[in-house]
Design a protein around this nucleic acid. Structure first.
Lengths: 175, 175
DNA sequence: AGGAATATGTCAGTACTATTGACTTAATTT
DNA sequence: AAATTAAGTCAATAGTACTGACATATTCCT
């Protein structure tokens, strides 16, 4: 008689809400924000047949020109074999070039070419503009508060000053 | 003579910086924050042999119990065939149950079981705690500012009040 | 009533990305 | 000289997503 709601046993009818998960609103907002944030570069990447792995590799090489293959592998936290394909494509397409290390000639130091530099800027500009727009829309003058929040979201947030100059914060990504 | 820096032509030696991309710091911080943010549930999911697709499906079904398969497909923006595998596993593992629609018997309305409810809470709690901790560390009293920022990061940000009660903000995810 | 459209599910084939493991070459370190 | 390191490659496997085609049951429309 009372089957207006699905009366199946062991079925939960009630939606999860902030009373179950206090920060559920932010969880969801972060999900959608990041989704749209990555959609911009994804569109550009697809024109080259590239994916996000190419974006990350090119980005970090541009952020730290002259890094070794081993460093990039450690930073991206992928296997040598996975990077191999991505790196090969980026080299073949003329976005990255390898140069034999001067002190250690086993090393193949990674540098972006001018084309690589252009691409990484193309990929990053929409993201930078989106952040700018969001800061304005949200009526936050500078990025200090958001920056503090995002840094605090990390596992071992390097709470150091703003002048951090490395590309990873801690040199190695703790998964 | 002057080959201290890699003198290869068409190679860029200088790192990209805030002078190239004004919001480069936030771009990077958002990347690392989201990476660590998703690592928590990923660890739990792997114990079930699940991936992020399972998380998203279970999450949205828990957020809106009784949604149809078509609605979930549209929300996740994946194909029917892709959802099929994920949904099958979630059903076989007893986390989601399908109930024939009362008004439209073609529909298979999706509900979390008690186990599904438990799992989605397990997955969301670490994320909620991480956000809580970050808000405290960043010395932001409530989440109002961060929430405004994240909402403004979306493509078509529903700038409406905080009382949004749907799981997507706009009912359909614009890719 | 009967045909069109809808909701769901499934099969087959393809592609991409990432994995592990084993091995090679060249250069450096000990 | 032997061990180690940096980089690259080959082979096999797995996970995830895709397209296209098709099947079934149900509802909508005329």
């Amino acid at each position: 008689m009372d089957k207006e709601t699905p009366a199946q046993d062991d079925v939960v009818d009630e939606a999860i809400s902030a009373s179950d998960i206090p920060r559920i609103a932010l969880i969801e907002q972060l999900f959608f924000a990041y989704r749209d944030f990555t959609a911009d570069p994804d569109r550009i990447l697809s024109r080259f047949g590239f994916g996000r792995a190419h974006h990350r590799a090119l980005y970090f090489v541009s952020r730290r020109p002259g890094m070794t293959v081993a460093e990039l592998i450690s930073l991206l936290d992928i296997t040598k074999q996975s990077l191999s394909r991505v790196l090969r494509q980026l080299i073949d397409s003329g976005h990255i070039r390898q140069i034999e290390g001067q002190t250690d000639r086993r090393q193949r130091l990674l540098y972006p070419t001018r084309a690589g530099r252009e691409l990484v800027l193309d990929l990053s500009w929409p993201q930078s503009r989106r952040i700018d727009r969001a800061l304005q829309l949200a009526d936050l003058g500078d990025d200090e508060l958001v920056s503090r929040f995002l840094r605090a979201m990390r596992n071992s947030a390097p709470q150091g000053g703003q002048g951090e100059d490395n590309a990873s914060g801690s040199g190695k990504l703790e998964s």
